[in-house]
């Protein structure tokens, strides 16, 4: 059998380089996911508003995010703005902006869905027991909203983490880019490295996303 090309991983500091590339991807994800959750919660509440203009604005925003490929958004923000507005955006900032722009819209829509799925009678029966507005939200509505939200938002989070692999297209040296560099540098000595190194990258993504999706499964089971 041919060599799997794993040996390249242990040459020099290759493995450490991969890990530091992974950290770049994780860092971009972490920041974007945090922004998305926080702002998404607020946007979700606003999306349930009766205000027509507000509704229309969020509707258009959500459609744009859903229709446009993330890569196109990345290119517009990173390359497009440089010439048109003269912005010299840092690539990582551009990436965080795009991923948050995406995450906020989807998170907001999830929050909106969870909020409107709670029936009016839940509010009323809590009020009929003498609870005030804060108590109704804190003890009755929010726990139910969060339970519905967690499996859905974890799905969104893992999708966001996976999609950070696109940021190499705007020159960010994250785990996939590092992998490419390692493979290129060892093309002569280990032509099979493409298999081994990309397999390791796969494994690294798996190690990040798997615990998160297990968490979601176990929470779903506990709360179903």
């Amino acid at each position: 059998m041919q060599s799997l090309g794993i040996d390249v991983l242990f040459k020099g500091t290759n493995f450490l380089r991969l890990l530091s590339g992974l950290w770049v991807a994780v860092r971009i994800s972490l920041i974007s996911v945090s922004i998305s959750i926080l702002v998404g919660l607020i946007v979700g509440v606003l999306m349930t508003s009766e205000n027509r203009i507000l509704k229309a604005v969020f509707r258009i925003y959500l459609e744009i995010v859903r229709i446009m490929p993330q890569m196109v958004l990345l290119f517009i923000v990173y390359f497009g703005t440089t010439r048109v507005f003269g912005w010299n955006l840092d690539a990582e900032i551009a990436a965080i902006f795009v991923f948050s722009f995406w995450g906020i819209a989807e998170m907001g829509d999830l929050v909106r869905g969870a909020l409107i799925s709670i029936s009016k009678i839940q509010y009323e029966s809590a009020m009929a027991l003498g609870m005030n507005g804060k108590q109704v939200y804190y003890y009755v509505i929010l726990p139910q909203t969060i339970r519905r939200l967690i499996p859905l938002s974890i799905n969104l989070i893992t999708r966001m983490i996976k999609t950070t692999s696109l940021v190499m297209m705007i020159g960010i040296v994250e785990v996939l880019k590092v992998a490419q560099q390692i493979i290129e540098a060892n093309r002569r000595s280990s032509p099979n490295a493409a298999f081994g190194i990309f397999a390791v990258v796969f494994l690294l993504y798996f190690l990040i996303c798997w615990p998160i999706s297990r968490l979601s499964v176990s929470l779903e089971k506990r709360w179903s």
């Binding site: 009678i121 839940q122 009323e124 009755v140 339970r147």
Partner: peptide, 10 residues
């Protein structure tokens, strides 16, 4: 007490 069983499901 309401028509629909309105217990808190959680």
């Amino acid at each position: 007490v309401f028509q629909s069983y309105d217990l808190f499901p959680h």
